[in-house]
Design a protein around this nucleic acid. Sequence first.
DNA 1: TTGTAGGCGTTATCAA
DNA 2: TTGATAACGCCTACAA
Lengths: 355, 355
Amino acid sequence: MSRAEGEVAARPTLAAVARAAGVSASTASLAFSGAGPVSDETRSRVLAVAADLGYGGPDPRARSLRRGRSGIVGAVLEDTLSNAFRDPINVAMLDGIADVTGPADNSLLLLTETEGEHTRLLDAPVDALVLFGCSTRLDASVSTVRRRGIPLVSIEAPPMEGVLDIGEDNVGASRLLAQHLHDLGHRRVAVVALELGPGRETGDITDARVAAGTTWPALERLRGTRLVYPDAGGLVTRGSWTSEGHRAGTQLLDVPASERPTAIIAQSDLLASGVIAAAADLGLSVPGDLSVVGYDGVRLDDPRAADLTTVVQPAVEKGRAAGRAVLALLAGEAATGTIFTSVFRPGSTTAPPRA
Amino acid sequence: MSRAEGEVAARPTLAAVARAAGVSASTASLAFSGAGPVSDETRSRVLAVAADLGYGGPDPRARSLRRGRSGIVGAVLEDTLSNAFRDPINVAMLDGIADVTGPADNSLLLLTETEGEHTRLLDAPVDALVLFGCSTRLDASVSTVRRRGIPLVSIEAPPMEGVLDIGEDNVGASRLLAQHLHDLGHRRVAVVALELGPGRETGDITDARVAAGTTWPALERLRGTRLVYPDAGGLVTRGSWTSEGHRAGTQLLDVPASERPTAIIAQSDLLASGVIAAAADLGLSVPGDLSVVGYDGVRLDDPRAADLTTVVQPAVEKGRAAGRAVLALLAGEAATGTIFTSVFRPGSTTAPPRA
DNA sequence: TTGTAGGCGTTATCAA
DNA sequence: TTGATAACGCCTACAA
């Protein structure tokens, strides 16, 4: 009936190691953390005993509590992982965050914010949260999460109380692209827009849809486009995927030549790539029969889209800025939002319209 | 000199809320967790007081310690996030894991296992770890991590003590593809291989490189291929990216026709897509001048690669299996590894060799 | 250089 | 239905 019987698989604790090594718990702690003076002899004895007992080091959970930090930054995505990561922009931003927070011993926790599921956001042991939402719908979650009193940083989100935003001049960059087309002489243009809201409803770009839209970058980009082409219409897609661009492109282009747009403004490079493929399928040459512009400047693996006229958004830099903001806020320093500017990158997919 | 001075931003604790509401801490706890009988009146009073004090709910860190669970599953990737997520297979597997562990209130922590950096693996407050490594190099980390006594699950890794593997019959599937080409009459084939090790050294597939290789699936796939083409050679790439396939393809194909392979066995669909692009650039038709097979069966956004002859690997299912294994192990149940089988999917990129 | 004491914020157990 | 008590495992002043 010895106590050992019930302790078969119980992981030993630091206290147990200390006891077995004949030192106090605090000494054993120092032996592991190296955060204080311990004689080499003592340390190695503790370590040896630990190895002997199969002790794998201090329990991170206990350490979290004691230190008041978990070393985890949450990344809140608004979609399934597959969808979120299909867009290289998101991955690049994530990488940027990790690039900055990693060296400070933080890891990234993936949190998906599916409809009405705030629980995980509230229960996750994160020190800070980065919102990839881009959607005003996040507002509801945010107000709940804000109460936790942890730093909140968003990337390209609409302004939210208590949230530091890392933004981008979507309007300006979109206007630049539109102006470029206008300067070339295009007068009949169509927009292939990103999803406008969580419902991912497709169809024409209508005033109603725009009014109900929640996806900040999509709305801002449209706004920028309309500074040049006030009446620009087009199609809403389900998201930034080549296949969606192909679908929308086909629908816009498979019409009599007289009604066909001479230029298409895709709201992402992935969409643009799909549009170009659609044009090719219909026997239309780019930029001869159709000019196409994108948005993002990601390095697309598709060679045909390699030389796309687009604006390059500093995605990794944006991630880094978000990471820096997180670290600053965690350190109790003041941090301010940043607004990045995308750079126009002329490619070979735009030219004056035919005749 | 009142105590309040120093407590400006201190988040209130459950105890503080309880005190203010005139109940015991345990009752307040129940009011939040709902894990016990509390009168409606009491609960609402507690909640009201909490709202009043700006208490955002129980601290997850403390909860982790008390419960002995953090609700976090670590995903160990062997690369930067950008590189790891460029391959849709990894994303799909991640999604599969999340699909299973998510409903059980677990989130995914991204851990990258860069050279010699075991620290984070050891310090992260995870309940279990899923290794995406695929590399025997992981062995070192594993032996350290194993001591933590948490469930360890790997996906397509070489057999490791104390690690449950979710595998795949790479050898069999690769042999199938090779046999398919052989049956069509191909005798001069070349392999475009995945990276063989962490160094991502490129060059010819040599015995030395193979012997030094650590990337399990790449080695296994090559082994399967050589069951049919014992002397099959080719090139090693830096990883599963279209651009790498393009580079390798160009190198293999841009030679006199007499030396040119009549078929290329790419070890991933992404690589195959690049090879096809390279063939197109060289004016070679697929499958007329060149047959190409891939591996993975991911839905590539590139339309030209859409109808690739390949084997479809159940990536999401593999992720789910890993997730289930994790949950089972966490529940203290026995769990066994699984070996999935990829399914041959004939496409339009293979045909008999010319003349 | 080492040990002592106390608490991080919560929840499980048990008794009232 | 509520409350008292005792951990969970560790770390950090501070004292020795």
